[in-house]
Simulated assay, not measured.
Amino acid sequence: MHLFRKIVNRKLCSGVNLALSKDGSSLRTLCTSARRSTVMQAWVIDKYGNNSVLRFTKNAPFPIIHYPNEVIIKVHAAGLNPIDINMRGGYGAATMAMKRDPLHINQAGSEFPLILGREVSGEIMECGLDVPYFKPGDEVWAAISPWKQGSLAEFVVVSGNEVSHKPKSLSHLDAASLPYVAVTAWSAIVNTGGLNKNNSAKKRVLIIGGSGGVGTFAIQMLKSWGAHVTATCSQNAECLVRDLGADDVVDYTSGPVETKLKTLEKFDLILDNIGGDTERWAVGLLKPWCGSKYVTLVTPFLRNTDQLGLADGMMQTAVTIATKALKHITKGVHYRWGFFAPSGRALDDISEMVDEGKIRAVVEQCFPFTEVPQAFAKVEKGHARGKTIVTVAREQEE
């Protein structure tokens, strides 16, 4: 389904994007429809910092299709995540700069003005030449890679292989709460943890941090696959977590959470969304010598590259993961790091699960496009009970 035609592309000064075929014999348009504007409304940052760096503009550059596998999405709603707070402050800037495509940054070679927002639900406006599986008007959702311009804008350009048709049963507002956390959980549980719908029955899984975006999604997905799920959360979130299907819920505010967890049967998989001190005691909760895995989404990779530079940071990261993996394998358990991995194919499967009633959106609060700084402040407080969403198209159309 996800086709890619190897052609060299070139943007002409007229603003129309054309592609040169591999043999150089002909030029073909990259888009299925012409660009409608040159500017759009967006929230941007011009430097890294606190909430004061967020700036609203009506003159953000309209996104352009540079490659034949890209699409432009008209944004109806955008989801916010802790990574947006971190990126606003410059976290991971060194690695993101290495990953950014020169065609998608400004002429000075800077990422600024930078648009944040990693989740989008909207409709296809334009398609590249090699995107036969979408057409203008299709309702879609996507998780956007951190090194690309984000969804806090009227339009966003993304790779077609990162996009999926939106679940028919969800509004754009609800749909925007899922893509980033869904593919993050999918990557950690399926790609790294090794569980899937065919082998999860009766597996015991512990989710540390069960009330946030990744946790609420992971609980539902694992329960739909037949796993036994234990989750940690605060007392205020216990009802939500149980309602999502968690078999056991441990309140971390009522005493040492590790003491309570040690009274339970050991686990086949632990998904750690919190990090910090949890790593010290959580690995000991796994079944030894049974292929059990501890997967943490809190890694030092970006921090290392920010502080030490790319080469030294990657070297330090490799040493750290190797040391920890070796230390824990001698105890009969596997230590792994989980990472976000955008995938339209994963979202295809997740969309089906949503429409079958196995996954539901958990939205805590919704903000209009004019109140993006307030939405950031909400996410920055932590203690999430679901997702924070920003509506975009609805307000622009009123």
Score class of each variant (00 low, 15 high):
Thr370Gly: 06
His165Trp: 11
Ile389Lys: 03
Thr95Ala: 15
Met221Gln: 02
Leu222Ala: 04
Leu222Ser: 03
Ala60Asp: 07
Ser21Met: 14
Ala377Tyr: 02
Gly109Glu: 09
Leu114Phe: 13
Gly194Val: 02
Pro102Asn: 12
Gly49Val: 09
Pro136His: 11
Tyr335Asp: 00
Ala325Lys: 09
Ile7Glu: 11
Ala375Pro: 01
Gly332His: 09
Leu269Ser: 01
Asp84Pro: 04
Thr370Leu: 04
Glu352Met: 07
Ser169Asn: 12
Asn69Asp: 15
Glu398Tyr: 05
Gly275Ile: 06
Gly89Met: 10
Lys324Tyr: 08
Glu364Arg: 06
Lys148Pro: 05
Ala341Phe: 05
Gln149Thr: 11
Val71Ala: 13
Ser52Cys: 05
Asp84Asn: 15
Lys58Leu: 07
Leu178Phe: 07
Leu347Glu: 07
His165Ser: 11
Asn161Tyr: 12
Gly109Pro: 11
Gly49Phe: 08
Val183Leu: 08
Leu261Cys: 06
Leu30Ile: 13
Pro136Lys: 10
Ala42Ile: 10
Gly194Ala: 06
Lys331Met: 14
Asp130Ala: 14
Phe367Thr: 08
Lys135Pro: 05
Pro146Leu: 07
Phe4Met: 09
Arg345Val: 15
Ser145Cys: 07
Thr32Leu: 12
Arg242Asn: 02
Gln365Asp: 09
Lys202Asp: 13
Ala282Cys: 11
Ser254His: 08
Thr232Leu: 07
Val249Arg: 01
Met96Gly: 03
Pro82Phe: 03
Ser351Trp: 02
Ala393Ser: 10
Ser169Leu: 08
Gln149Arg: 11
Arg5Asp: 08
Glu356Gln: 14
Glu395Trp: 06
Trp43Asp: 03
Ala311Tyr: 12
Asp243Ser: 15
Ala237His: 13
Leu285Thr: 04
Val158Ala: 15
Ser110Pro: 01
Leu18Tyr: 09
Ile45Trp: 01
Leu264Gly: 05
Tyr335Gly: 01
Tyr294Pro: 02
Tyr180Pro: 01
Val390Pro: 08
Leu244Tyr: 00
Lys262Tyr: 03
Phe267Leu: 01
Thr57Cys: 03
Ala227Ser: 12
Ser159Gln: 12
Leu240Ser: 03
Gly344Phe: 04
Ile329Glu: 14
Thr32Val: 10
Asn199Leu: 06
Ala218Ser: 15
Glu258Trp: 05
Lys387Gln: 12
Val241His: 01
Ala246His: 00
Glu398Lys: 14
Trp141Ile: 12
Gly212Lys: 00
Asp277Tyr: 06
Glu119Lys: 04
Gln235Val: 09
